Simulated scan of single mutants.
Amino acid sequence: MSRAFVKETDGDLPGDLPELPVSPHPNYVTARGLELLRTRLADAARRRGERDLPAIERAHIEREMRWLRARIESAMVVTPGGGALEQVGFGMRVEIADADDRRFRYRIVGEDEADPERGLISHVSPLARALLGARIGETRVWPRPAGDLEVEVVALDAGP
Rank of each mutant, 00 (worst) to 15 (best):
R3S: 11
R3V: 11
K7M: 07
K7R: 06
E8D: 15
T9C: 12
D10N: 10
D10E: 10
G11S: 08
G11Y: 13
L13E: 05
P14K: 07
P14D: 13
P14W: 09
E19R: 14
E19P: 15
S23G: 02
S23L: 01
S23M: 07
H25Y: 14
P26T: 06
P26Y: 14
T30M: 04
T30N: 03
A31L: 12
R32L: 13
R32T: 08
G33L: 14
R38K: 14
R38L: 10
T39K: 13
A42I: 12
A42E: 03
D43H: 15
D43F: 12
D43G: 07
A45V: 04
R47P: 01
R48A: 14
R48L: 13
G49M: 13
G49Q: 10
D52Y: 04
L53C: 08
E57A: 15
E62S: 09
E62R: 05
E64D: 12
E64N: 05
R66H: 09
R66I: 00
W67S: 06
L68D: 13
R69Q: 15
R71Q: 12
R71P: 10
R71I: 13
E73K: 15
A75Q: 06
V77L: 04
V78D: 00
T79G: 01
G83N: 07
A84G: 13
A84V: 15
A84L: 10
L85P: 01
Q87N: 04
V88I: 03
G89F: 07
G91H: 02
R93W: 00
R93F: 04
A97M: 01
D98E: 00
A99T: 11
D101A: 05
R102V: 09
R103C: 09
R103A: 06
F104K: 10
I108V: 04
V109S: 02
E111K: 02
P116E: 06
R118F: 11
G119K: 15
I121Q: 03
H123D: 11
S125C: 00
S125D: 03
P126Q: 02
A130W: 04
L131T: 01
G133P: 15
R135V: 07
G137Y: 04
E138T: 06
E138Q: 11
E138K: 04
T139C: 05
W142S: 07
P143L: 03
R144S: 01
A146I: 06
G147N: 02
G159M: 05
G159S: 12
